[in-house]
Write a protein that binds this DNA or RNA. Sequence first.
RNA 1: GCGGGUGUUGCUUAAUGGUAAAGCUCCAGCCUUCCAAGCUGGUUACGCGGGUUCGAUUCCCGCCACCCGCUCCA
Length: 478
Amino acid sequence: MTEAGTLKLDVLAALCKRRGFIFPNSEIYGGINGFWDYGPLGSELKRNIREAWWQDVVRRRDDVVGIDTAIIMHPKVWEASGHVAGFADPMVDCKSCKKRYRADNLCEDQGQELVRTDTGFVLPAGISCPACGSKDLTEPRAFNLMFESNTGPVKDDSSRVYLRPETAQGIFVQFDNVLATARQKIPFGIAQVGKAFRNEINPRNYTFRSREFEQMELEFFIKPGTDTEWHKYWVEERLKWYTSIGLPSSSLHLDVHPKEKLAHYASACTDVMYDFPFGRQELEGIAARGCFDLTQHAKFSGKPLNYFDQETNENFVPHVIEPSAGVDRIALALLCNAYREEWVPKGKDDSGSAGAILAEPGKPVPEAHEPRTVMRFHPRVAPVKVAVFPLLKNKPELVAKARGIFEDLRTDWSCFWDVTGAIGRRYRRQDEAGTPYCVTVDFDTLSADTVTVRDRDSMKQERIAVSELHDLMRERLR
RNA sequence: GCGGGUGUUGCUUAAUGGUAAAGCUCCAGCCUUCCAAGCUGGUUACGCGGGUUCGAUUCCCGCCACCCGCUCCA
């Protein structure tokens, strides 16, 4: 971001659309609220986020395995998890001033308790609208946030299914199968990346709160009593991970939930927060959920979900630590963090960006400078790692040589090929895409077999041998 | 969900109750020996649906999307 709080979300949204990061869903039909599509660069960015997470949370660890479960599950799963009953906020509207409240909060604020009945909720007598004082309020209505569908040809209550509102339950429900096949001992984790759906009342802040989104969840199963230490461990691990993909620790914060705000089964919950342009918001929640989920599924399914510890001869229901992250939120944080407007010296200038200055919004561009928009992604998440250009398009020998280098690099990295326009224009295009390095083939390449490698952030170039290009990129793109 | 605002091409901005214009971008060609050069040509727009009218991008109604505030944040 250019400066704290100065990045406007609509400016970022314009760049995202222009360069192909994020598009409004079904745009030619007018769009649909709460859904977003990712373009060529955005889909690479998301893929890189998922892969960085999968690498660090699954592949490079001995004690975590991955699974991939279906979006639609047996409807009883959601009764057991509490989502059918509890994943709904009873709301009341004031009929006179049209304000809307959460019924439970409203009652609590006025020293009363919301009455729960078999069919729903009833407001106790005497509750009034805090805004206008009117007692003319609607009955509490529950908005269940789960999307519903039906399996099979008949559409009735018996065929009702839900689109999962989180990926976690797929893990709990397969706990026994994974335990039987993965040869893991507690403590160990099961990880999953996938789509989840919540019928948000009010999607907001660009892609931040969407109705379809992607989660990366880990359920790390532990021995009861070790909850505190493992929770602390995962909070630290996860925070480190965010800096490894380029988010500065100055923009990251931990929000430790106070005990009284925790769900009854949870012993701790800490959120990883990022300073978005619209405020400090959650990227990931790390919860110590006790044995709630496995116990519930054991109860509702009638199948015990226990663990037998061979060393101690103990049989227990494992406790779980759940780091649960949102891919789209991380993508948005990375986009916000990468976006930067600069003023750079015009024309030929070998000094590179020594003269580049941070743009000040609203001020005119200084003499002999021009604006540059650059996405400063960490190489780990940059959608395109290397762009390859022949210096001139109308010299077949340059084009052929460059193409060969491009074909070589693309076997290992996401690469971009561009022959159109002046070289400077091509550099700027890659700046907006956030490509860390541009390799240019010029006439010296033909004689000396060297190329220039241009750095996105410093705009400096260095000349290196073609034979060393692969190793250099491997080192720089870590 | 409530209130306010916005909606003309990829972007920025015009004009108009009667053929929608320009700059930048993009694409093609020419040219070009490293940071948005030049020349020529080209694609692309009135958010959607009604109504009024001979004729609506323009006036009216409805809807949709986005932005801001409130609410919400499971």
